[in-house]
Amino acid sequence: MTPLTGCLLVSSLLFAIGLGGALTRRSAILVLIGIELMLNAANLNFIAFWRYGPHSEALTGMLFVIFSIAVAAAEAAVGLALIIAIYRHTKTTDVQEMDELRG
């Protein structure tokens, strides 16, 4: 097994765990954690293809990962702000009970 194959195997396992967590959990915070796991799996793919690719001296993989981490931080901040606002209104973080969009 090559190192790239090992990295891709770990990344696909991490993505599957995140997808399963995002689709099966009822708490909005755990859904956000699942989404973060999927983003980290994509970051691992970026790093693996950059490191074991033909042009590892170019920093394109690192730039993609840094941009992805910035997007993930913004997503987490906005997501947590939305969850806090919804919790103040409905007194629950259950995703299935958040079916109304009135203010």
Score class of each variant (00 low, 15 high):
1 M>Y: 11
1 M>W: 11
2 T>R: 10
2 T>S: 15
4 L>D: 00
5 T>Y: 10
6 G>M: 12
6 G>H: 13
6 G>P: 07
6 G>F: 11
6 G>D: 14
7 C>A: 15
8 L>M: 10
8 L>D: 01
9 L>C: 13
10 V>Q: 06
11 S>E: 02
11 S>P: 08
13 L>I: 12
15 F>Q: 08
15 F>N: 06
15 F>G: 03
16 A>G: 07
16 A>K: 03
18 G>S: 05
18 G>F: 03
19 L>Q: 04
20 G>D: 09
20 G>M: 14
21 G>T: 12
23 L>M: 13
24 T>G: 12
27 S>F: 05
27 S>H: 09
27 S>I: 05
29 I>N: 09
29 I>V: 15
30 L>W: 10
30 L>N: 09
30 L>S: 10
30 L>T: 10
31 V>N: 03
32 L>E: 05
32 L>W: 05
33 I>D: 08
33 I>K: 02
34 G>K: 04
34 G>S: 00
35 I>H: 02
35 I>N: 04
36 E>S: 08
37 L>H: 02
38 M>F: 06
40 N>T: 14
41 A>V: 06
42 A>E: 07
42 A>M: 14
43 N>M: 15
44 L>C: 05
44 L>T: 05
45 N>P: 10
46 F>S: 02
46 F>N: 02
47 I>E: 08
47 I>L: 05
47 I>D: 00
48 A>Q: 06
49 F>N: 03
49 F>G: 04
51 R>I: 15
53 G>D: 09
54 P>I: 10
56 S>D: 15
56 S>M: 10
57 E>M: 11
58 A>H: 13
58 A>E: 12
59 L>G: 13
60 T>N: 11
62 M>C: 14
62 M>W: 12
62 M>Y: 15
63 L>P: 06
63 L>Y: 11
64 F>M: 08
65 V>A: 07
65 V>W: 02
67 F>M: 10
68 S>Q: 07
70 A>T: 05
70 A>V: 09
70 A>Y: 01
71 V>K: 04
72 A>R: 09
74 A>S: 07
75 E>L: 14
75 E>P: 03
76 A>T: 12
76 A>D: 03
77 A>M: 14
78 V>W: 07
78 V>H: 07
78 V>R: 09
79 G>Y: 04
81 A>Y: 11
81 A>R: 11
81 A>V: 12
82 L>E: 04
85 A>S: 14
86 I>E: 07
88 R>P: 02
90 T>F: 15
90 T>C: 13
90 T>A: 14
91 K>H: 15
92 T>I: 04
92 T>Y: 04
94 D>A: 01
94 D>H: 03
95 V>D: 01
95 V>G: 07
96 Q>C: 12
97 E>G: 06
97 E>K: 07
98 M>D: 05
98 M>E: 08
98 M>A: 13
99 D>M: 08
99 D>I: 06
100 E>L: 13
100 E>N: 14
103 G>K: 10
103 G>Q: 11
